[in-house]
Nucleic acid binder design. Structure first.
Lengths: 207, 207
DNA sequence: GGAAATTAATTAAACGTTTGTTTAACTTTG
DNA sequence: CAAAGTTAAACAAACGTTTAATTAATTTCC
């Protein structure tokens, strides 16, 4: 079984699931888009649901590694936080279709076995980020903010923008609709906003 | 046609669409859950899709009125902002199932006619909130923050938490899983966080 | 005011599609 | 020449919707 073709089916599936949802994507349309016979999906993956699982598992967990690397760093807490902002926004923007699928799946109460798996991954990332804030608070360089909700703000703001390009473009006052979201200008703007926001929120102002 | 029964079908639809999505909810299951015959859905609403539209239109636009009321207030900008935080969080928590459907729909590229309608509503709310920040900046009581992204943070943080109760409970370190999210303790905690966050972000610290 | 006529509401069954999956025959590959 | 890959066709089950028959409610008329 050629790995290329398998990967190509997974790529197509990710794109279509992101656009139309799992239930909204038929295996026939999917196979057509990937340029393979319908039977190949069962042949390669066993079933549509197992294809979905394979697609998730391919990408999941990739974020955690970089986070642990940042965490192990010698830098002070705010420097770490800056690195997390930078890294997390890059990650989200380069993985938009996958992020959409993941968060949509979490908001559904179908396929609970999958939700639990996703929650585990998200939870690990979340804890890693929270620990940076807690460290900063122990070192008295961060204020006594709500650590969990502060991270929820970071993640929530970014996924809000990532989730619907069409909406975001309109809200952020953009002219050209589809193309622009996720481009460098936007990314920079969001990075600056998150940086300013968390700086004002976390850092104790110097006298 | 009894309005009660129509409303009851819409209630059931909202609950099931919220849990399993539009494509994931069959008209038979829906009719069964509502305790009516399958044919009644076509009879009352014309089609499954028109039922969906009716369900959206029933709730949409309700937020805007209160916002305009706050906007027309005599209070200073920060007071207005505090009112928005209070009102918006209450609204989101009392309408969780509907919010899930709305944001899920926005992240899909199905039914574009509906997405546009939803975007219009969200956009109006969004603009109203942005205008408060811009007013505060004109009056020199708010800092030169990014107005659009600041509102995106407010909305994003809350919908992040509203979207998946299961995840939120785990992330916010809760013991009992389903029941607690959306209760008063949580709501207060989120309100305090948003209040502190936006205060630090928006207000110019006194010398 | 009550029987008759008319309209509205409700039902079970059937409709034609589309769904995900499997089969069996065929082709390519090592 | 056996194993793996690929195909079109067929599978049963589920889908949204419609039909035709029946019951309930409302209106009409004397």
């Amino acid at each position: 079984m050629s790995t290329d073709k398998r990967e190509h089916i997974l790529d197509t599936a990710q794109e279509l699931f992101s656009q139309h949802g799992f239930e909204g994507t038929s295996v026939r349309v999917l196979a057509n888009a990937a340029g393979v016979n319908v039977a190949m999906i069962s042949y390669y993956f066993g079933s549509k649901e197992k294809l979905f699982q394979a697609m998730i598992e391919r990408r999941a967990g990739a974020t955690l590694m970089t986070l642990k690397f940042i965490l192990a760093n010698e830098a002070d807490s705010w420097k770490k936080m800056e690195m997390v902002i930078e890294h997390y926004i890059d990650k989200m923007f380069s993985n938009m279709s996958f992020q959409r699928i993941m968060y949509r799946e979490l908001s559904l109460e179908q396929r609970n076995w999958l939700s639990s798996a996703i929650i585990d991954i998200v939870h690990q990332n979340f804890k890693a980020m929270v620990s940076i804030i807690e460290e900063g608070q122990r070192k008295k360089s961060f204020r006594k903010v709500d650590p969990e909700l502060t991270i929820a703000t970071l993640i929530g703001t970014i996924s809000k923008i990532t989730l619907s390009s069409e909406l975001s473009c309109k809200l952020l006052g953009d002219i050209n609709p589809k193309a622009s979201i996720g481009d460098e200008t936007h990314k920079k703007r969001i990075k600056k906003h998150m940086h300013d926001l968390l700086k004002a929120h976390l850092l104790i102002p110097k006298k």
